[in-house]
Design a protein around this nucleic acid. Structure first.
Length: 393
DNA sequence: AAAACGGGGTG
DNA sequence: CACCCAGTTTT
């Protein structure tokens, strides 16, 4: 596509978008705050998954000031289930930075200085909220641009990224300041929304609907019949299998022991039951723990693991306990992991909570208010229905 | 350049 | 189950 083609290309794109663009909630505003929240939530996350989270989040934190003033734990609780939790921590930190600063950065460079805002998100907020001619490349546009350019190399490589970002910049309408005159009158944010929408709904990964594409005339892949060869697929990571064990240690009053994950751990800031990855020789012979009531009577397969867990709980928390009931087994596939999580019940024997770590005894019903991981939430939810040896009446 | 990120939707 | 998702940060 030559520069001479660009006005017609943009016109066809925008006509199509006006007729076929989805009415997504964050497209109804030019306020940087809700737009920024949506962009961070949408990082590596589908639109369908984000919509309900975005609605709840904006209701709880209607302004950047409200978000900045919130406890991190409340932010994480609203993020629970969305994954990639560093996004929530960065969002919270960035909100504080914006409030401290007194105003939003109004440039790509300024936006990129915010934690969790990279090249794409900065361009998105700059163009959608501020109407700046900032290019964007993300999953949808990577695919669209690679096909338009008939880019045969790896679009995720340095060279590929350079080519795509260059193209992303080239298709934007000239701004008034750049052209020195009145400008094109076309909103760069609208062009960016349109290319993403086209990539997301027409220029799809499998079986792109080129017959419905408003810009197929300018598409190198379509012209040469290479739609299914371009772009090259992303390398698939190898799946890692892991078996872990977690313990709900219960006190006489029914409260269970939880700890907040440290800043340098996975799930930083989230809460969790004491959780471990025991040596594999201790878990390979553990029979399946279906959720059952009463708790599974434990056999030879579990015994060495139970002793190990008892020691591990004491080392991690300071609490002495007897681990004595197989309660539940959770199988969970996430990103590149396939996890078998063995859930046990334990009874407190004595000991004090170690100082220096954030830990609490909490009634199972109150776990609703704490941010937990997916599997932590599953265990917590089932806990109300489970009872085991050592129960107080 | 590669790995981590521990979640969900879709066919 | 395989593959992908409006990426960013750390190693």
């Amino acid at each position: 596509m030559t520069d001479a083609d660009l006005p017609a290309f943009r016109a066809a794109l925008l006509d199509w978008y006006a007729a076929h663009g989805r009415d997504l909630p964050w497209r109804r505003t030019r306020d940087p705050y809700p737009i920024w929240v949506s962009e961070v939530m949408l990082q590596q996350t589908t639109v369908a998954a984000v919509v309900p989270y975005w609605e709840r989040f904006l209701e709880a934190f209607p302004t950047v000031e409200a978000l900045a003033a919130a406890p991190e734990s409340a932010v994480l609780r609203l993020w629970e289930g969305l994954g990639y939790y560093s996004r929530a921590r960065n969002l919270h930190a960035a909100a504080k930075a914006v409030v401290e600063r007194g105003e939003w950065p109004r440039s790509v460079e300024g936006l990129r200085d915010l934690p969790g805002v990279g090249r794409y998100t900065a361009g998105a907020v700059a163009s959608f909220a501020f109407g700046l001619p900032a290019p964007i490349v993300e999953a949808n546009t990577l695919r669209l641009y690679a096909r338009l350019l008939a880019y045969r190399g790896d679009p995720r490589s340095s060279a590929g990224q350079a080519a795509l970002w260059d193209f992303a910049e080239r298709i934007l309408p000239p701004s008034p300041s750049e052209s020195g005159e009145s400008g094109s009158g076309v909103d760069p944010g609208l062009v960016n929304q349109a290319v993403m929408e086209l990539g997301g709904t027409v220029c799809t990964v499998k079986e792109p609907r080129c017959g419905e594409c408003p810009v197929s005339d300018w598409c190198g892949a379509f012209t040469t019949g290479l739609q299914s060869e371009i772009p090259l697929p992303k390398a698939r990571p190898k799946i890692t299998e892991v078996t872990e064990a977690t313990v709900a240690v219960r006190r006489a009053d029914g409260a269970v022991l939880v700890r907040q994950r440290d800043a340098d751990e996975r799930w930083a800031g989230l809460w969790d039951f004491p959780r471990f990855e025991p040596p594999s020789e201790l878990t390979t012979n553990v029979p399946t723990l279906d959720a059952r009531q009463p708790a599974l009577p434990l056999g030879d397969g579990d015994t060495p693991l139970l002793a190990w867990l008892s020691t591990a709980v004491q080392e991690q928390t300071g609490v002495r306990c007897e681990v004595g009931a197989g309660l539940l087994e959770i199988r969970h596939g996430v990103t590149r992991y396939r996890i078998r999580l063995l859930c046990y019940g334990g009874t407190r024997l004595g000991g004090r909570l170690r100082s220096g770590a954030t830990m609490r005894w909490i009634q199972p019903a109150a776990l609703t208010d704490l941010p937990l991981s997916k599997t932590g939430r599953q265990f917590a939810t089932r806990l109300a229905d489970l009872s085991w040896e050592g129960d107080s009446p």
